[in-house]
Design a protein around this nucleic acid. Structure first.
Length: 225
DNA sequence: TTGTGTTTTACGACCTCC
DNA sequence: GGAGGTCGTAAAACACAA
């Protein structure tokens, strides 16, 4: 039996010339691929999942050649080229393409339907990748902000401790001074706090004994609100 | 070689538009 | 109502690891 080899496919077809056109003919029944795929002949009952080919129809369909024919590279290339120009397929164009490629118009229509579906899936994937990238960027920014918040909270806590220590010292000084002959006027004078070397908070506090507690309350409000 | 996952071709059901 | 669209899926074809 003659065979037609196209790519890795081997078809039981010969190529005949007729009226200066190439006709592909099935060696088994003399039909052409286009003839075979005419809608009425091609229609088949769909088998349910898990069913096997046991009845005559199924055997004939499975045993028959080209029940499902893979398009040639050339046909696919032409279809792709056509799809690039226009994704939709009006009737005249469909007939023209089908004629040029030796395919049934129905095959061309189906190919375009499937191609549109693939194109849509690809677009969706691209869109998903884009959104995911944006999402990742936002999450990263959020992490950075959260770590910054933690760092600042620690610094604030340290500052509060420092203030408490200094407040204790201040109280000590004022107690000592009131019992000694040297009196220290602590009420209105600005106090130059000596901050711990590890802290860099050069916050100018001008506070008296009276307003210290108020300031501590202010810190606490800031801290927990 | 065979099992398995992916791609391609084809179809049925349903929807929209003219 | 018919033509042509989408959607979901069956099944053949194909790729590839084991």
């Amino acid at each position: 039996m003659d065979q037609m080899v196209l790519g890795s496919q081997v078809y039981p077809y010969t190529v005949q010339t007729q009226h200066s056109q190439c006709i592909i003919v099935n060696q088994i029944d003399g039909s052409s691929p286009a003839e075979e795929s005419k809608p009425v002949k091609r229609r088949r009952k769909r088998k349910s999942k898990g069913s096997s080919a046991t009845n005559e129809d199924d055997v004939a369909m499975i045993g028959g050649m080209f029940r499902k024919r893979k398009l040639t590279d050339e046909q696919v290339n032409m279809l792709e080229y056509s799809f690039e120009n226009e994704h939709k397929l009006e009737s005249g164009r469909k007939e023209k393409i089908a004629g040029e490629l030796g395919l049934d118009p129905r095959q061309v229509a189906v190919w375009f339907q499937n191609r549109r579906a693939r194109w849509k899936n690809k677009k969706l994937e691209e869109e998903y990748a884009k959104l995911k990238s944006q999402h990742d960027t936002v999450v990263l920014g959020q992490c950075q902000l959260e770590s910054q918040v933690l760092k600042l909270t620690d610094q604030l806590s340290e500052a509060q401790n420092e203030i408490r220590k200094l407040s204790g010292r201040l109280e000590e000084l004022s107690t000592n001074s009131s019992s000694s002959s040297l009196s220290v006027e602590a009420n209105d004078a600005p106090i130059d706090f000596e901050f711990a070397p590890e802290t860099n908070y050069n916050i100018p506090f001008y506070m008296s004994d009276n307003n210290y507690l108020q300031n501590m309350e202010y810190w606490d409000v800031c801290m927990y609100n």
